[in-house]
Design a protein around this nucleic acid. Structure first.
Lengths: 165, 165
DNA sequence: GCAGTAAATTAGACTTGGCTAAAGATATTA
DNA sequence: TAATATCTTTAGCCAAGTCTAATTTACTGC
């Protein structure tokens, strides 16, 4: 019961529209994905057949519990990568979104879960995490190299010096 | 002059075979990508037309300079992600490879370059990087939480205590 | 309650990328 | 060198996913 990238995109788009509007119309989805209305109709038929979407011809579009669950998972993957790209890598928001929108379809649950653990570790550990990421931002902007330590390194160096005394 | 994921896969497969054998045959590529021989023939015609591959019917397959350049870039993206997944996230090698093989086609140069900078920062900075990643490995295995600090945290805590005196 | 407009669907075509089966080319080996 | 085995290509098919154009349905204002 694998979904193609394309069908996942439709599901996610429906999910995102519903978050704002309680129910989606085909045109909303078409605009969001920049495809023809007829392509949406096509996709809807498949998604209804698979039990992921509720939709009678000419009627509004909602998600079944199963469809909602899958859509939520896809949207979550999107967010994780978008945030990593913009916050940590300082990629512009448009590129970050597009890239997240591709990766979300190909990253297995197992891998993104581990990735999130990794990011959490970096962010939560108050003895380095957040400052570590900030240190990267510093290095990136300043174009520093090993001989020109970032804030985190500099601080650590100082401490080392102090404790040697 | 965009290449589809599929064509990129063929290019990369040719590149990888050539690295070992100096020239590739259609069957090598078919086996590597697990497709029918005729699919390889098909793809080769397109790649020859695009000036990325040298190939006359029934003859061996090589890459043009342009094809080689592109293939190398794709293979590099593959490596970066495979290594990150196996080394940092401790994903099993098979999953890591498959996942890298999907992402390599959708990650823009701009994004992976920044990602590599980030990884280099983490690894090179002798005041934290390598141990930081090790710290994550520790946490992952031990299933520790915030109250149960990793090696890096523990060490830093000690230093803080010392310098408070 | 009806006419006009906007939205949704259907029909039919096209592209990409895969397949199988058969035919043609090349290599091997007796 | 002739027979056989192995590649490679060709031909024709299929499925997914898109499009445009034409048709059908639903809504809205008078």
């Amino acid at each position: 019961m694998e979904l193609s990238s394309s069908l996942e995109d439709y599901l996610e788009a429906i999910y995102n529209v519903i978050k704002v509007k309680t129910a989606a119309r085909a045109t909303d989805i078409a605009k969001k994905l920049d495809v023809a209305n007829s392509s949406v109709t096509n996709a809807l038929q498949i998604l209804v057949n698979r039990g992921l979407v509720n939709h009678a011809p000419y009627d509004i579009i909602t998600l079944t519990p199963e469809g909602s669950k899958i859509a939520k998972q896809i949207a979550w993957k999107h967010e994780v990568f978008r945030d990593f790209f913009t916050t940590v890598l300082a990629i512009d928001s448009d590129t970050a979104n597009k890239c997240a929108c591709s990766i979300e379809h190909v990253i297995p649950d197992e891998v993104i879960e581990r990735f999130v653990q990794y990011l959490d570790f970096e962010r939560q550990c108050k003895y380095g995490g957040k400052r570590w990421v900030e240190g990267f931002g510093f290095m990136r902007k300043a174009g520093t190299n090993e001989n020109d330590p970032c804030e985190v390194c500099a601080e650590k160096k100082e401490q080392d010096a102090r404790s040697e005394k």
